[in-house]
């Protein structure tokens, strides 16, 4: 199959950037989207041009590196699918595919399709942990957790930190990402001690990074490749309210 690709090219953070069109030909439907990008890059290198820079690593949908905005959708047209798990059989022969980086102020472009998501790391540093030094843990089965709670915490913990939720949101809100992490801990007994302080710290860090506020459109959930649910945002908001209204002592 043949495609026309309109790709955002931007030399570095200071450059203003623009779309450039390329053609790729004889692409098999079993080729993954990123392998199709590899084919393009191979052509560019052969011509002596710089290849398109994009983030990717595991190519199994779990590292969260890949981050392309394809035909106006974060991670492309398929639901519950990261860019790396997208296959060319889902794109019509002869079509034009528009490929952009995540667009959000807190995610500045580094080069081409690569953005800086270090704001996510900083939010996690603000409180996404259970304070416990190595060696001080009790026997694992001393902490009994119902299967339902463990499964629910796991579902929240599956977030890969890709940032598609931010890219999909018209306000560039990071609420889905932040609430998923908060929910993982809030659903587990181990997470209770620091629950409200954690919520305060992480929400404040999220605001400080310049992410917008959540206006409940659920665009994030629709684009999240891991199907993280917006119900976590509701839980985050409840916890945040509690945390700001009462002192921590009273709550715990």
């Amino acid at each position: 199959m043949n495609y026309t690709l309109k790709i955002w090219r931007q030399k570095n953070a200071a450059d203003s950037g623009s779309f450039v069109s390329y053609k790729v030909e004889n692409i098999d439907g079993e080729t993954s989207f990123l392998e199709m990008m590899d084919v393009l890059n191979q052509q560019l290198v052969t011509r002596g041009e710089e290849p398109v820079a994009y983030d990717h690593d595991c190519r199994e949908g779990v590292c969260g590196m890949c981050s392309m905005y394809i035909n106006g959708r974060a991670h492309g047209p398929n639901e519950l699918t990261t860019t790396c798990q997208l296959y060319m059989r889902h794109f019509k022969n002869g079509s034009t595919i528009i490929i952009e980086p995540w667009r959000a102020k807190p995610f500045p472009v580094i080069k081409d399709l690569m953005v800086d998501r270090s704001a996510f790391d900083r939010i996690q540093q603000a409180g996404a942990y259970i304070s416990m030094n190595a060696g001080s843990a009790p026997d694992a089965n001393n902490i009994m957790i119902s299967k339902e709670a463990a499964d629910a915490a796991f579902e929240a913990a599956e977030c890969i930190g890709c940032g598609a939720c931010v890219a999909a949101c018209k306000n560039s809100s990071a609420s889905l990402f932040v609430s998923a992490k908060l929910a993982q801990f809030a659903l587990l007994p181990q997470g209770q001690v620091e629950r409200y302080q954690r919520t305060l710290n992480m929400v404040q860090a999220m605001d400080a990074e310049g992410f917008g506020s959540c206006s409940n459109t659920s665009a994030c959930e629709a684009e999240c490749p891991k199907g993280i649910s917006v119900k976590h945002i509701a839980m985050m908001n409840r916890d945040y309210l509690k945390a700001t209204m009462c002192s921590e002592k009273v709550m715990s």
Binding site: A137, S146, Q190, G191
Partner: peptide, 23 residues
């Protein structure tokens, strides 16, 4: 090996559980 599991559980790693609540 056993202490690793203790450590991870205490950190909030959501390992698979039986219905009775054990790992």
């Amino acid at each position: 090996s056993g202490a690793i599991i203790d450590q991870c559980v205490a950190q909030g790693v959501p390992f698979a559980r039986e219905y009775g609540g054990t790992l």
